[in-house]
């Protein structure tokens, strides 16, 4: 009796330890990446990084200010048309989508989520860069939309499906039209979940590099026009990192640190909204 019980307890402990080890393995990369970035990026993490344009090799100072602004511009541009499109499409799928068309949309969105992001870049190149005969913020935003929209469509749909049926019924029974019921009551009920989905998708596109390579291209200078090549942090990091110069490498690390800090900030905001209930 006693030996069996001992063995069972030991096995139980072993299994528990295994689960814990795997959990640690999952969060470990985030910490390793973050601390490695902090150590290697700290050297160049100074005000000039955030306010200066890139300087030529060898010249001290220089930063990624245009990249930071460019990333914000491209991200906002992407969200300007992607948020309404994706949310309304999610509403369609959750509230009206029963037939074959809806299944096709769902399947397409799921497939799009798995398509390698460089393909979105190539697609943006063919669709916008070639006809417009120039790289541009527009093309970058179009490529990022193709990553952003499918993710938000599916999270919006999932969040709307968590709204209990009795909420719909209560609203309809008050003589509220169906579209108003959906837009003002059902969406409102699911709003924190939808917002969380939008923020997480935003964090995702913030760091995408491949779709921008053939579309936004990158720029060493300020760019105020949306139909011209524009800088972005990931592109700038890429440029710095593949260069053969030591001081550019340091700037690449610092740029990466800025990028991951932005992503972390957005994720934390998303968590904050996701937790707030009722």
């Amino acid at each position: 009796m006693e030996t069996v019980s001992f063995r069972r307890k030991a096995l139980d402990r072993c299994m528990k330890a295994l689960f814990c080890v795997c959990a640690v393995l999952v969060i470990l990369p985030l910490f390793v990446i973050f601390f490695d970035l902090v150590i290697k990026g700290a050297k160049e993490l100074k005000p000039s990084l955030l306010i200066d344009l890139p300087h030529p090799v060898g010249e001290p100072g220089g930063g990624i200010a245009n990249g930071i602004v460019g990333t914000i511009v491209i991200t906002l541009l992407t969200m300007l048309w992607s948020v309404p499109t994706a949310v309304l499409c999610g509403i369609y799928l959750a509230e009206y989508g029963r037939g074959k068309f809806a299944s096709a949309v769902r399947f397409a969105a799921d497939t799009m989520t798995g398509v390698p992001s460089i393909i979105m870049g190539i697609f943006g190149y063919i669709l916008l860069v070639v006809p417009m005969k120039r790289f541009s913020a527009w093309a970058g935003a179009a490529a990022l939309s193709m990553i952003f929209i499918p993710v938000v469509v599916r999270t919006t749909e999932d969040m709307l499906r968590t709204v209990p049926h009795h909420v719909h019924e209560a609203a309809l029974a008050l003589g509220i039209e169906r579209w108003k019921t959906i837009l003002y009551i059902v969406v409102r009920t699911a709003s924190s979940g939808i917002l969380t989905g939008i923020l997480l998708a935003m964090a995702r596109i913030l760091g995408e590099t491949a779709p921008l390579l053939f579309t936004a291209l990158g720029n060493q200078f300020w760019q105020t026009r949306l139909d011209q090549p524009i800088a972005a942090i990931p592109l700038q990091v890429f440029t710095y990192a593949i260069s053969p110069y030591e001081d550019w490498h340091d700037k690449a690390w610092a740029g990466a640190l800025v990028l991951i800090a932005m992503v972390l900030l957005i994720s934390l905001t998303a968590r904050f909204f996701g937790r707030e209930k009722k």
């Binding site: 909420v167 019924e169 008050l174 003589g175 009551i185 009920t189």
Partner: peptide
């Protein structure tokens, strides 16, 4: 449905709405 109102088995106030908004929402959206 504006002439024939309904109350359900399970109390179902709208989530994320205050007491006031729950009563006002029908008027506002009508």
């Amino acid at each position: 449905r504006r002439r024939v109102g309904m109350v359900f088995q399970q109390p179902n106030p709208f989530p994320r709405m205050s007491v006031f908004e729950n009563v006002a929402v029908g008027l506002k959206l009508n």
